[in-house]
Amino acid sequence: MKIVQLITHMNEIGGAQVHVRDLSKQLALEGHSVTIIYGGNEIVANDLIVDTITYNHSKFLIRKINVVKDFLAFLEIRKKLKLTKPNLVAIHSSKAGIIGRIACWSLRIPSVFTAHGWSFTEGVEKKQQHFYRTVEKWVGKISTKVITVCDHDRNLALRNQVLPSEKIITVHNGVMDLKNTPSEKGNREVMKILMVARFEKPKQQLELLEALLQIKNLKWQMIFVGDGSLKRASAQFVQENYLGNKVTFLGSHSNVSDLLSDADLFVLTSAWEGLPLSILEAMVHGLPIIASNVGGVKEAVRDTENGFLIRNNLSELLSILIENELLRKNMGEKSREIYEASFTFEKMYEKTISTYLNLLKLGENG
């Protein structure tokens, strides 16, 4: 099978980018020909490069809405698809999702769009919600198949009448089992809290820092992994509130697996999400999770079982887990158990390839 994966950018690491890399790598291992067409910066992040995959840059595909560039991106992607002649195009991220589906429809190439979280989800600004909901309803009419990464997003699309139920399938996100040998954490005095996320909307690192400030007398060390435009504001908050000895900013990090292995608790304070890979990766390492109750998070973080969902009580939840080692251990074991049952890469891959093949079969019969 000749497959094109289309995504808005590959220059920085995010959930959609890691998903595309791992999926493409496995497809190539199984003998399929895979090309990733991507926009944004031409440079692909080192951690996203796989030798067996062809990378093809689109100079007009950008994240922000720009009518002229978006039209040029449509023409450019259409041309690239005509030259590549794939059996199927798998599309990821909002902007590529719109332009890619129109291009595939115009060429009669079967396509699958994976929504890694809708741009009209709760928490997004109302005007933006309305705009993307309108666009998705229109593009939905010409969509062949859409994968949502959690049941929450499937239900959201159905509730907003963006797509009919027969066009949508939920394939829960899954991640590779990269569990390391656990670090010796027992009896250490200071508990390590980890958050892995870009310093951009909607991640809200400042909300976590404000909650930690209220319990600065407890023994904790906060480690942030990630870069972005809002990082400076967080660093300034740390400086102004004399938290420099308790908070570390690591920036982008090539081996998050080692950090997860050494952490005691994982936190994610997003205003909106689909189903974050970072939470699933923390569950691989048997960590308890504190996370915002948004998107599909509650499908992985079962409140009071393998962590807590935040309900305006972040400081309180942090205190409970900082001070209770046995609870951390029990919740962490439950995280690993839920991961193995529902969120392995193998389960996700199997359902995804099955969706691809069913779509191709449908095209042949149609």
Rank of each mutant, 00 (worst) to 15 (best):
L6P: 00
H9R: 14
N11Y: 12
G15A: 05
A16T: 06
H19D: 03
V20W: 01
D22Y: 09
S24I: 01
S24V: 01
Q26D: 06
A28N: 03
S33A: 05
G39F: 11
N41F: 03
T52H: 10
T54P: 00
S58Q: 05
R63L: 12
K64L: 11
I65D: 10
V68D: 03
E76W: 09
V89W: 00
I99H: 10
R101G: 04
A103W: 02
A103N: 06
S106L: 13
S106T: 15
I109S: 00
P110N: 08
F113V: 10
A115F: 14
H116W: 12
W118H: 06
W118Y: 11
W118M: 06
G123H: 09
V124Y: 10
Q128C: 07
Y132D: 01
T134M: 13
V135G: 05
V135T: 10
E136S: 05
W138E: 02
I147Y: 04
I147C: 02
N155P: 01
N155Y: 12
N160I: 05
Q161C: 07
Q161E: 10
V162F: 09
L163M: 13
P164V: 15
V175C: 02
V175Y: 02
V175P: 01
N180S: 12
T181R: 13
P182W: 12
P182M: 13
M191T: 12
K192G: 01
V196W: 00
V196N: 00
E200G: 07
L208Q: 05
E210K: 15
A211I: 04
L213W: 12
L213R: 14
W220N: 07
Q221N: 11
L230K: 14
N241R: 13
L243I: 12
K246D: 05
V247C: 10
T248I: 15
F249P: 01
L250S: 08
G251I: 04
H253Y: 14
S257L: 02
D262H: 09
A263S: 15
S278H: 02
L280C: 03
H285I: 01
P288W: 13
I289A: 03
I290Y: 12
N293P: 04
G296V: 09
N312H: 13
L317G: 04
L321Y: 12
I322E: 05
K329A: 10
K329N: 08
K334F: 06
K334D: 03
E337P: 00
T352E: 03
T352R: 07
N358L: 10
L360G: 03
K361P: 01
L362N: 07
E364D: 08
